[in-house]
Design a binder for these strands. Structure first.
Length: 461
RNA sequence: GUGGUUGUAGCUCAGUUGGUUAGAGCAUCAGAUUGUGAUUCUGAGGGUCGCCGGUUCGAACCCGGUCAUCCACCCCA
């Protein structure tokens, strides 16, 4: 038996430097959320399985991490468990085997929360949520099995100002992060629906939209073959081809699309909505992209997807959209909403690659007190404590090692200052304060140590 | 779920057509240097070559399986 420790596929440990950088991202995004009046919410790591099942499409259901029931080997459960397992082997679910699952995203648990509390909430209800979610996907670049989502949603309002406001929140956050080279792709589920209508293929909506969503990777020639194999006629393909050839800047695209749909009422609605968001969130770097088709089944209006700067090869770093009736899934009708999500793990990877993190995030220990012998160390400890009381992050080297080792320790931990208090210094109530980067060394009277240290260049709170 | 890549020291990697005792750099530890280091010198420790099996006189190397990894597809943040 190998006892080599390991962590599950697609998960990560985060060290201090990584956590500081992640917190830097989170703090900026949370601050934007708060500024726009969104309130925090947290929901459990796991939900009842039936809350989650069927909300993410067939493929999504397969990617939900399910939790095995306890007590399956209990005698009174054993027959049920066997029958349930037979169902599982057929690819079905059985509450006799599993009735809870790790949450797959933040939107559905939020909808569940709203449905449970709709009589108490004040609408429009704006909340943000930063929590881990889990997907049983194969890990690869920019894809993890445990990752953090960062969502903002507003429910109980149909007003398009919400949609525009969320676009501005993307813009604010990415500008503050130094990712102002992002692009916010925008489309509307209504337009895609209208396309299916114009093609006389309303039952093929999913097929058509997922196909054109691949256009940036797969050529139209190949997609045509795939679509015709699925029963689309040459005339239908021609219509789709005309639609996806719409190009130009945002205004031109909207104009061409208006012409293309020739008065189709659903299309007109969708186009007007995009037009409104474009005008209201005019500072955001929006690109009208009719090939955008987010897979999630619950979107009904505007859909968003954020692309990283083109130099970084990574999938989307955020996404969202409008849904008319999410809580209807939980028996409460008439609560529309719209939301966005930041994929902070991917934002982290992008910022790391583009070196966008500020240098001074490493605010660990600021002062190392050297150990000059056991008597000296206990006096140094008292002096260190008085600094700690004033908020200075300090530590004392515990062992009586030679100075070489103590210096090396400080260097490895990126501690900017060393305080040396030996017998000579103790006699005359001063210490040696050394800046380890510049090698400058000062004689400082102990009473002045705090003030002197905290005003030194290179000192961080 | 499908396809491919790579598994050798703590880390990054060499290792010839299968041949005796598996190497390097970095890192670690000790000493030169008992109150001033990170860029000098000397030395030391460290390996079940992912795991299991097969072929062979002989396997880090060839074959089969398995696990892990990274990448791509599906889908997605």
């Amino acid at each position: 038996m190998s006892t080599k420790p390991s962590i599950p596929q697609g998960t990560r440990d985060f060290n201090a430097a990584t956590i500081r950088k992640r917190n830097y991202i989170l703090q900026i995004i949370k601050q934007v959320f708060e500024t726009y009046g969104y309130q925090p919410l947290e929901t459990p790591a796991f939900e009842n399985l039936e809350t989650l099942m069927g909300k993410y499409g067939e493929e999504g259901d397969k990617l939900i991490f399910k939790i095995l029931n306890n007590g399956l080997n209990n005698e009174k459960n054993i027959e049920k468990a066997k029958a349930g397992f037979a169902l599982v082997l057929e690819g079905k679910n059985s509450s006799d085997i599993t009735e809870r699952a790790l949450k797959y995203d933040l939107t559905i648990p939020f909808a569940r929360y709203v449905a449970m509390n709709h009589t108490k909430l004040v609408f429009p209800f704006k909340r943000y949520q930063v929590q881990n979610v889990w997907r049983a996907d194969r890990p690869q670049k920019g894809r993890y099995r445990e990752f953090t989502q960062c969502d903002a949603d507003v429910v109980g309002s149909n007003h398009l100002l919400n949609d525009a406001e969320l676009a501005m929140m993307y813009d604010d956050a990415f500008n503050k992060l130094g990712l102002s080279d992002y692009t916010l792709h925008v489309n509307s589920r209504k337009i895609l629906e209208a396309l299916a209508q114009v093609c006389n293929a309303t039952d093929q909506l999913v097929l058509i939209t997922t196909a054109i969503d691949k256009l940036d990777k797969v050529s139209w020639d190949k997609l045509q073959i795939e679509l015709s194999e699925n029963g689309l006629t040459a005339a239908q393909l021609k219509t789709i081809e005309t639609f996806i050839s719409i190009d130009g800047n945002n205004e031109e695209r909207l104009a061409k699309a208006t012409h293309f749909f020739a008065g189709n009422p659903i299309a007109i609605k969708g186009l007007e909505e995009i037009e409104y968001v474009l005008q209201t969130a005019s500072q955001a770097k929006i690109k009208v992209d009719f090939s955008l088709a987010r897979g999630l089944h619950y979107y009904t209006g505007i859909i968003y997807e954020v692309k990283a700067p083109p130099t970084v090869k990574i999938g989307s770093i955020g996404g969202g959209g409008r849904y008319d009736d999410l809580t209807g899934l939980f028996g409460v009708n008439g609560i529309p909403g719209v939301g966005i999500s930041f994929g902070i793990d991917r934002i982290y990877d992008v910022m790391e690659e583009l070196q966008l993190f500020p240098e001074n995030l490493e605010t660990g220990t600021q002062v190392l007190f050297f150990n000059m012998g056991s008597k000296e160390a206990s006096i140094a400890f008292q002096i260190m404590q008085s600094l700690r009381q004033k908020g200075v992050s300090a530590e004392l080297y515990l062992e009586e090692h030679k100075l070489q080792k103590q210096f090396t320790y400080a260097e490895k931990k990126n501690i900017p200052f060393a305080v040396i208090i030996g017998s000579k210094e103790i006699e005359q109530n001063y210490c040696q304060l050394k800046n380890l980067q510049t090698q400058e060394q000062h004689i400082v009277v102990l009473d002045n140590l705090h003030e002197f240290l905290t005003t030194q260049p290179g000192y961080h709170q």
